[in-house]
Amino acid sequence: MKWHKVELHTHTIASDGDMLPTDLVDNALDRKYEAIALTDHNTTSSVAEAVAYGKKKKLIVIPGIELTTFWGHIVVTGGNSHIDWRDITLDNIDEILKGARDKNDLVTVAHPKRIGTPFCSECRFLFKLKDWSNVTSYEVWSHYMPQASFESKQTKEEWISLLDQGYKIAPVYGFDWHTRDEGCPAIAYTYVGVVGDLTEEKILKAIEKSHTYISMGIEIDCKAVRYGNDYNLGDSLPSGEGEIVISANVVDEYAKYYSCEIKGMRFYKNNKLYLARKWSGEKISVPVEFDKGYFRVELYGTVDGIDGDVAILSPFYIK
């Protein structure tokens, strides 16, 4: 499996961004994204132009929309469902999201713990979902300096509580990119893992299967080994004795702009800390007795002098 940098939450002049669809593609290439999703607020009017220009410039542009409702924002990606945001209510949200999933679109909860009104018109997720199984992905991180914000603390808590309830939801970073130079170069990325050539279909499938991690300039190779078989992030594996093998390095290009130091990593068996290890810079192997539930890894460290999580990995799911 190879890991690719993507940005799944972007805007153009069709909503409140300042980039033409063609500018978005050019600027995404400058930022070294390997794919983006175009997710304007409540409109897809820029999508066709961005997709066509992306093909010409060899950047995958995934059709999407940010359903910008009165009770929170939801990114729907894939371009198969055509939802009129005005139809969404507190009562029918589960049905609407199920409809999107039935059409194989991804459903991502966007910046769920942003402060919201009156600072921005309801960008905090206030829906009380009855069924989170219609949610494929969750912006555990959003916007700037995600390692240190109050928002990230709350999003991480909610994402973990969803894992504890048995939901399989991929962690993603949503920069929520509106203007060309905003947050440039990118402070964090979502990495998606695919086998073979990168395509739109494979990206969507990778997120659906939780083959993701989010990081601040760190490339990670992490697998679980059980009965001699290797498992990728997001995979399911049988319980029992095995190991986690992990290596990580700060990307040179990222280090030109941001000072990033990995200090250590934490391993969690379900929601309990299993092991914390200081980072030596070497590939490490950790013996684990995998218990039913999930097993996940996060890296902590410093970016530009601010401490916090510097990478959060999708869990391995233990049967």
Binding site: T12, I13, A14, S15, D16, D40, H41, N42, T43, T44, S45, S46, T68, D84, W85, R86
Partner: peptide, 27 residues
Amino acid sequence: GYLGTKHKHNPHQILEISEEKSSFGFM
């Protein structure tokens, strides 16, 4: 049916719809 939404913050806007080209935000 639904042609789109203008989600800009400017309190005064001119929105145009035509077969050839509509304002940004609309099909």
